[in-house]
């Protein structure tokens, strides 16, 4: 049995995070020792019967009160600023991040790489490359937690959330579900494998652990689904009276019947498939059936396919992480 004291530092966030953590720890120990020592010293020195000078005790002292109001306040504000800055970094993935899709369900993690490789309860990532996870839950709230990376993000049903990181050290790390999700909550975990880029490349090309190279990519699967559901009957290469074309949709801004401008992000497209009446493109009727039976995996594949149909020329900043219905309804 060993006595570990801290988790590995295996991502870009680990070092700055630990610096803050240890600063706070030092602060905690410092104040605990100060207060503890003072209390014990006073209590022992002024114990009953001990002949010490007790004269001149006051019952209030404005200077002291202000001192111990202001010092904790300033320390607190410094810590707040430090932590907030770090937090903002963790919420803003770099533009060139590699995308991996994660679906949480009772009780497993399912990951999909863009080239179609899929994993359950495992996730392979390259070292030194920014990775962005786009995550959604199929049932209840889960939370994607990798202690060695110092990251955690809740995974919600009905809405995409994201998390990014750069693994800095090859190795095998824990993956936990940190939000209580039912019977086998404690077994909803697995491992993250950080591989050197070349190795990762090889792993990915060979079809992952299941060694099934050249399997259909996410977009391929999306295309199959697109054909099976006959989406092309209404959404062809040109706008038709029945539905707008999906070519060049991804990232485009479209005007809706209620006059709002909507940006076609993953969240919007997901909502438009599952619940087409929520937002209707200007000039169209709501004749599209609701595809409520599609799984989150299907939806991700469809979105991956629609992405390959081209994007608008000038995507501009995309608004994300909002609630499904008004996501991207943006400018209220």
């Amino acid at each position: 049995m060993n006595f570990p004291l801290m988790p590995d530092q295996a991502s870009n966030f680990a070092r700055p995070y630990d610096a803050l953590f240890f600063a706070l720890t030092a602060l905690t120990i410092l104040f605990t020792v100060i207060v503890g020592a003072l209390v014990l010293y006073f209590a022992v020195k002024y114990r009953k019967g001990n002949r010490v000078d007790r004269s001149g005790a006051v019952e209030s002292h404005l200077g002291l009160e202000i001192t111990w109001t202001v010092i904790p306040l300033i320390l607190g504000l410094v810590m707040f600023w430090w932590a907030a800055k770090l937090y903002v970094d963790t919420r803003q993935p770099p533009q060139d991040a590699m995308e991996i899709f994660v679906i949480g369900k009772q009780w497993m993690w399912h990951a999909q790489h863009a080239n179609g490789v899929r994993e359950n309860n495992e996730l392979h990532v390259p070292v030194g490359v920014p990775v962005r996870l786009t995550m959604i839950s199929q049932d209840v709230i889960h939370s994607f937690f990798v202690p060695q990376f110092r990251i955690k993000q809740d995974v919600l049903p009905g809405r995409y959330t994201q998390q990014w990181f750069i693994a800095t050290k090859p190795g095998k790390y824990n993956l936990f579900c940190a939000e209580y999700c039912g019977t086998q909550h404690s077994e909803m975990g697995g491992y993250i494998y950080a591989l050197p880029p070349q190795e990762f490349q090889k792993w990915l090309a060979s079809g992952g652990d299941k060694k099934r190279p050249n399997q259909p990519t996410m977009a391929d699967l999306g295309k199959q689904l697109y054909d099976r559901l006959a989406c092309g009957n209404c959404h062809g290469s040109q706008d038709s009276p029945r539905g707008p074309s999906l070519y060049g949709l991804y990232g485009a801004r479209r005007r809706m019947t209620d006059g709002s401008i909507v940006e076609a992000t993953a969240s919007y497209i997901r909502e438009a498939i599952k619940n087409p009446y929520a937002k209707i493109n200007e000039g169209y009727q709501n004749t599209m059936p609701e595809y409520r039976e599609l799984t989150e995996e299907d939806l991700l594949n469809l979105i991956a396919y629609i992405r390959t149909l081209g994007t608008s020329k000038a995507p501009g900043p995309v608004l994300g992480n909002a609630m499904p219905a008004q996501i991207d309804g943006g400018n209220r």
Binding site: P93, D96, A219, A266, G320
Partner: peptide, 24 residues
Amino acid sequence: PREYIRGWEPAAEDPNAPAALPQP
């Protein structure tokens, strides 16, 4: 909705994408 998230464009159109990575 104000939370700015960079980069929903496919990496293929992104000149900064690392070459070693799998291209979508």
